[in-house]
Amino acid sequence: MENAAEPQALDITARAQAIRAGSRAAVANALAELEATRTRPETRALVDALYPSPRQPGAVIGLTGPPGVGKSTLASKLVAAWRSAGRTVGVMAVDPSSRGSGGALLGDRTRIRPAADDDGVFVRSLAARGALGGLSPAAFEAMVVLRAAFDMVLVETVGVGQSETDIARVADVTVVAVQPGSGDTLQFIKSGLMESFELLVVTKSDLGAPARRAHKDLKVALSLLGRSDVEVVLASGTDGSGVEPLVAAIDAVRPAGQDAVRARAEQLTAFATAAATRLFGTLAIARVGGRRALQAKLAASAPAGPYDALARCEEWLT
C-alpha cells in the first residue's frame, strides 16, 4: 500500500496483527486499499483474516436519522462516553454529498473532536457512492477492518429512505434518531423500516415538552406495531443529558453469545447475497434457485469472510 515502505512484502498475518493491536497506520492503509479502483488479492485476504476477530461481539453501532436531527452532536457525545469508559472507538462518517464527478465533500467529521492527544479515536469519512445515499460498496469491508482494530465502531449516516436498511447490513445495533416536534415521529412510523432498528433516540431533549411528547408518541406507535420491546431514549447532544442511559441501552441490546454468532452469520450471508446480485445480476441468481437458495448455500458453506463468501458466489453463479 501507498503509505508504508514495501507494503506488499509485509505478510498478511503481520498486517492483521498490527490492525488487531490498533495500529492507526495499519488501519488507514487497509482502508485506503479498500478504496482502490481495483481491489488487490492481498487486500481480500487481509479482510478475510480480520473477519473472525472483532474486539467485542456486537461492537458495531449504526446511528442514522434525517438531516438536522442532531446526529453528529450526539455521535460526538457517544464517542466521548465510550472513551471515558476506556473503550477505543472507530467511526465511519458516511457523507451523502458525493457527486456524479466522483468527487465528494466530506465535512461531518468536524463535529467529532476527540481530546487533543487522544489517539484512541479513529474517524474515517466515507463518500456515499451509488444511489439514494446508501453506503458505499466497500462499507462492509471497512467495517470489518475497524471492528478488528477498535472496541466500538460507530457508523453514522444521514437517513434518506434506503440507508436505514443499508446501515442495518453493517451494524450489530441500529439506533434511529428522531427529532421532537418535527412530524418525524409519524413519518418514521409510516416509512416502513420497522425491521431495521433496535433502539430509538429522541434528540434535543433539552427542548423539554416537545421531546417528552415525541417520546410518548413513539412508545404508543411501537406498541401498535407490536414492538413495545424497543426502548426509546431521550437525549441531548447539547447538554449531554441522556447519553449515559443511551450507552447503557445500547449495551443492553447488543447481541451476545450464540445470538451474536447467528446474527453475524446472517449478516455475512445478506452482504454476500446483495453483493452477488450487484456483481452477477438477478438472472444468475435465479439460475441457482433464487436469493433464498443462494442464502442457504452460503449459510451451509460457512465462509471465512466477505471475500471468501463472494468467491463462492462467483463459483456458483458463473
Binding site: E2, N3, R24, A25, A28, N29, L31, A32, E35, R99, S101, G102, G103, A104, L105, L106, G107, R109, T110, R113, A116, D117, D119, F122, V123, R124, S125, A127
Partner: peptide
C-alpha cells in the same frame, strides 16, 4: 472529482496530521 475532507477552522497542527492519517 476530488474526494475532499473539509476539516473546518481552528485546528491544531496535531489535529490536521491526525486527520490526514485517518483519511489516507
Amino acid at each position: 472529482g476530488i474526494e475532499v475532507v473539509y476539516q473546518g477552522i481552528r485546528l491544531t497542527p496535531h489535529e490536521i496530521a491526525r486527520c490526514a492519517e485517518e483519511e489516507s
